[in-house]
């Protein structure tokens, strides 16, 4: 286990370097004039250009710039935006909101998805099974922004049940509908995964043994079947937390949530390159570490899996 973890951590290093370098090169290396439009209608003054060139090491070749940036990043310095705000401050205010949203989304998809999956997995073919199958198909086919816009329009504007724009420091209740929207796609996958997994395990030897021992059905299902069947579901949910932290841009845009997604989007629109590279780097780390953590958790949950 220890050696496996170490090997995986080492493998993360080239991936992290590659991804951040691509992003850095795309936003810094390929922009022909980083100061275009930075000073309104006028050209930027020589002193401003000189100061920014120094701050972002623009005189160096891109690879040297990148290494200098990386060096600062490793000491926890995310750099500054063009207007001089620390990028880390921006992240510190926006990230908690995104984490809250991702957790709400995962909680909703876990509860509804697992419930639907268990219901259909235990009953077998029939009306409920088909109903869930069709609803998961529709959920998979609905792009997040369509769900978001429609729910915002119906629940927010026409029925007036929710606010169309979530305030700066939202409560869990205010994030319920955005969380549902964000988690709706994965909810369908969770339901299907749970169902498939239950159906596979229903015929497993250990379930037959449990029934043959005369255990009550509640115990067979709750302890023997569910605990085994939910292992892949739990790992899926783990990957999803990692993915949702970086994938909330659309949902945050629709409901005007001031999270990390909105920050990236504004950063790109305003060509604020330091913000973009900083956040993308952070999100990539979170994503990769979340995946590693889930892989390790998998071995803990299922002792049959051995990594060494």
């Amino acid at each position: 286990m220890g050696r496996y973890t170490l090997r995986r951590l080492l493998q993360l290093v080239p991936v992290f370097l590659g991804t951040t370098f691509i992003v850095y090169y795309l936003v810094w290396g390929l922009s022909d004039d980083p100061f275009a439009g930075k000073c309104g209608q006028r050209e930027c003054s020589a002193s401003y250009v000189a100061q920014m060139t120094e701050r972002y090491n623009l005189d160096d070749p891109v690879i040297v710039q990148y290494l200098k940036y990386l060096g600062a990043l490793l000491t926890g310095d995310f750099g500054q935006t063009f207007s001089g705000t620390e990028v880390s401050t921006l992240i510190a205010t926006a990230y908690p909101v995104t984490i809250k949203l991702a957790l709400v989304a995962v909680a909703i998809e876990a509860v509804i998805g697992i419930a639907a999956g268990v219901l259909t997995g235990l009953r077998g073919r029939g009306f409920v099974d088909n109903l869930v199958l069709v609803s998961t198909l529709v959920l998979i086919a609905l792009p997040v922004f369509v769900t978001g816009l429609v729910l915002r329009q119906v629940l927010g504007v026409e029925l007036g049940w929710i606010r169309t724009s979530v305030p700066g420091d939202p409560t869990i209740g205010q994030l319920l509908v955005p969380g549902f929207v964000l988690g709706s796609l994965s909810m369908a996958y969770v339901a299907r995964l749970t169902r498939t997994s239950l159906v596979e395990n229903r015929r497993a030897d250990f379930v037959r043994t449990a029934i043959a021992k005369g255990l009550p059905r509640r115990r067979v299902v709750g302890v023997h079947m569910l605990r085994n069947s939910l292992i892949p579901v739990v790992t899926f949910l783990g990957y999803d937390i990692g993915a949702l932290m970086g994938g909330a841009i659309v949902t945050e845009g629709v409901f005007n949530i001031r999270g990390i997604g909105g920050l990236v989007y504004r950063g790109i629109e305003q060509q604020d390159i330091a913000t973009v590279v900083g956040i993308v780097g952070l999100l990539v780390i979170v994503f990769l570490l979340a995946n590693l953590l889930v892989d390790l958790l998998y071995a803990v949950l299922d002792p049959r899996i051995r990594y060494d």
Binding site: Q11, P14, V15, F16, G18, T19, I22, V23, L26, V27, L30, S31, A243, G246, G247, I249, V250, V264, Y265, I268, E269, Q271, V276, V280, L283, V284, F287, L288
Partner: peptide, 26 residues
């Protein structure tokens, strides 16, 4: 595999935004 992971590590929408805005200004 490592080369693929570099691209897989980039969340889809985030990567799309970075690539497309680099080649076309908003």
């Amino acid at each position: 595999s490592r080369f693929a992971e570099v691209f897989a590590g980039l969340p889809f929408i985030l990567g799309g935004i970075v690539i497309l805005t680099t080649f076309n200004k908003p």
